[in-house]
Design a protein around this nucleic acid. Sequence first.
DNA 1: CTCCGAACTGACCTGACGGTCACTTACCCT
DNA 2: AGGGTAAGTGACCGTCAGGTCAGTTCGGAG
Lengths: 200, 200
Amino acid sequence: MSIPAIGTKGVPRPRREAQIVRVATAEFGARGYARASVAAIAARSGISKPLVYQYFGSKDGLYLRCLTEVADALLDRLTDAEQRVDDSVASRIHVLRALFEALEPEPAAWRLLYDPSMPRTGRIAAKARHYRARTEAIAAAGSQRFLAARGITDPEDAAALAALWMGVVDSLVTRWLTGPKQSAAQMTARCERLLAAVWS
Amino acid sequence: MSIPAIGTKGVPRPRREAQIVRVATAEFGARGYARASVAAIAARSGISKPLVYQYFGSKDGLYLRCLTEVADALLDRLTDAEQRVDDSVASRIHVLRALFEALEPEPAAWRLLYDPSMPRTGRIAAKARHYRARTEAIAAAGSQRFLAARGITDPEDAAALAALWMGVVDSLVTRWLTGPKQSAAQMTARCERLLAAVWS
DNA sequence: CTCCGAACTGACCTGACGGTCACTTACCCT
DNA sequence: AGGGTAAGTGACCGTCAGGTCAGTTCGGAG
């Protein structure tokens, strides 16, 4: 191999970790935290279970790592896109485009953020809450602005609209990863068409 | 007791079954299929695990029973409400009202239909697919009509809009059962207000 | 009184899964 | 050559949840 080979299989730790994280993200996304098994992730990575534990400490540690990598990348793009959104409904397309593009390599990753089968307490729950709070803050700010421009100031209404918008986003992603295979660009175009139709 | 007492605790089977189903629906809805345990359901019902198995055969059997009862009642009201919906966005409120009213006694029941932690194969998956298909058919018919009235005939677009609408519904219900406690009437009013604002 | 059947349970089995340990293999440095 | 260290594993343990069995307690029918 061209890469300096170290150890029994010659795969250095950073490379191995990245590979495990990739496999684990797909597995967690597809089966959920509760139903995903470490042994299966190890097998699909071509290694044995103890190595996963040596590198990530625990199932929680592995999930945490996947979650942070996914969520950090996602939130970066989302905050960036949100700044291109104004008071119009149509401008929301920027958020959707950013989402689809960020998720294109591994759409199932989206499920990590809102997996209902993950533990309710502990480090995972805390981190997930943190990311959810950040996402909601973005959505809430946008909703509040949107409603204020239309003369509605009730914060409960803004929260409800934010929840609604996130539900829309979630449903679109879900359809993306369960329905027929499509590119991010196709999804964006379809959403643009729909947005125009519903507000015609 | 006034009720004819039969057996060691004097609770006749139909009454016991109804009680178990009620407890199990709440448990499945709150914790999801994977995290809900039969022993816990039995304990919360004041009986032992073997009785649950005697009456329902298996965890799947119990879930199936809860699912059918919830979904049948829900779909009845939904099909009924859908007939009051015309081409306007505002008329969609009828569907939401029906949903909130049907779910008022046990909002968590909604989760049974779309629990991602349920098995992917077998009787449960089949039944859930069946109900989901029926729900989607209702939503798809409405979406198709809605888009046709606006000059869009692509069936993929209609399917996407149906998914989107169901996402809206799901997010509203989710917010209902995680957020501050509110009556079905309050939720309906809020949605009516939001609907009017977003399309102003 | 006695038998039958229905309601009900303590104790057990089994398999899966998270997690650990002792141990091996292979490279690098001196 | 030989030790140090990192990569890697087979075999094991504890726990917990789904599922089963043998058996007990009661009311009612004859």
